[in-house]
Amino acid sequence: MSFDNAYESLLGEDDAHWAFGTGFSEALAGVDREVPGGVDRADLAAYCLMLGDDALVLSQRLAEWTSRAPELEEDVALANIALDLLGQARLLLTRAGEVEGAGRDEDALAFLRDERDFRNVHLAEIECGPVAGGDFATTIARLLVFSSWKVASYSRLRGSADPVLAAVAEKGLKELAYHRDHAAQWTVRLGDGTDESHRRMRAGLERVWPFVDELFAPHAVELRLPGVAVDPSELRAEVDGVLDAVLPAAGLERPADVPAARVNGRAGRDGVHTEAMGYLLAEMQHLHRSLPGAVW
């Protein structure tokens, strides 16, 4: 192939995949992939799916801002953050698929599962803009909470007995800390800005707050994987500490805790989602399902 033009490189690649176009199934080619002794494979696969779905679904939500952000720099920023999360999702879903051992790769997991099979927390999927009902400030509020939570989680996950999770966490932690700084700086800028920006930042926090409680509720799978998974109930103090540093600087207060209702005690980790999830998946999966095996 001569690569004389941009299109030529898109043709004839037999390892083309949807997410980036080429063979990321080799993503874990050089990583130690031994499943640690005594670990239940189904539980480990389910845990990787939880983390992978958190990253994938928020990545999809952030990508919706492309060309719609309040300024060009923010367009680029949100797309870059989405890209980091997508990269983490691909590694985690690839790991979920290989540990599961049923022949599903990252694409099959991302594009061919139905809503009830997704294991992300509700915070990742709820509508926070750019369409009606959401706002840039709401997206920033979500990013602040989500990335603060993930920083706390990944900094512990670096010590996981699963070598792949440890490696993904070590890499992802640096990215998430940068996302957290970005969200924190916007929170201060909007909260401490004009009356209007303050009002919208406060409304954004109130919008996402009911979904915070779920982040710290351990799932049975997490509790069955000591040494491999992080128990999210241990993360609350660290996340509260970060928010207590950011919110006063922004002239904001933590909203009252009124957790969103669960369905028979179940939420995102059990595959029970909000009404926004079906629309999100329809957009994300439509092309792949309409044209199975299509490449680009």
Binding site: T22, E26, A29, G30, A166, E170, K174
Partner: peptide, 26 residues
Amino acid sequence: GADLRRSLLAAGYSAVEVRTSLSPAW
């Protein structure tokens, strides 16, 4: 990965395997 494969094949090597290492993180 593609550039590495192309360059090494052009230099006369018969087969090129490109692996990815995540840890230690760059």
